[in-house]
């Protein structure tokens, strides 16, 4: 959970968040490229979550497995949910929705790392 993949996901999410917040501040609706970028971030998060899930299945010990699994599901669904809301909102608020979605991803990843570091072993 605590590898370069997590760091890459956090950095990508933060960079995108700055971009979307800037777009929102400049009164721009999310464009096609913005949504593609959100899709790429979703894929990155999907890979991260898949790696963590495989780790769980192959015997990594996590103390609070229910919470960890809940966070995994939330994390993987999060950017697509923000993206879905943003598609329905072709205004600056759509860009803000994507921006806030990208700001929450690092929080979720850090929480996952926190929970994973408290091993049941």
């Amino acid at each position: 959970m605590n590898g370069p993949l997590s760091s890459a996901t956090i950095i990508a999410a933060l960079v995108l968040a700055v971009w979307y917040l800037l777009r929102s501040a400049l009164d721009r609706a999310p464009g096609r490229n913005d949504l593609i970028a959100a899709g790429v971030l979703s894929l990155l998060v999907l890979v991260l979550v898949a790696v963590a899930a495989i780790g769980l299945a192959t015997g990594t010990e996590v103390a609070d497995i229910g919470t960890f699994a809940g966070y995994l599901i939330t994390t993987v669904a999060f950017v697509p949910t923000a993206g879905y809301l943003a598609v329905m909102e072709p205004t600056r608020w759509g860009s803000l929705t994507l921006g806030i979605g990208c700001l929450i991803i690092p929080v979720l990843v850090l929480r996952l790392q926190q929970i994973a570091s408290v091993t049941g072993a």
Binding site: T81, A82, L85, M88, E89, T91, G94, T97, I100, G101
Partner: peptide, 17 residues
Amino acid sequence: GSGLGRVLLLVYGVFAL
């Protein structure tokens, strides 16, 4: 639920969850 309301919807949804 449109405009800023949709942003609030996302944030409230996160806190609800």
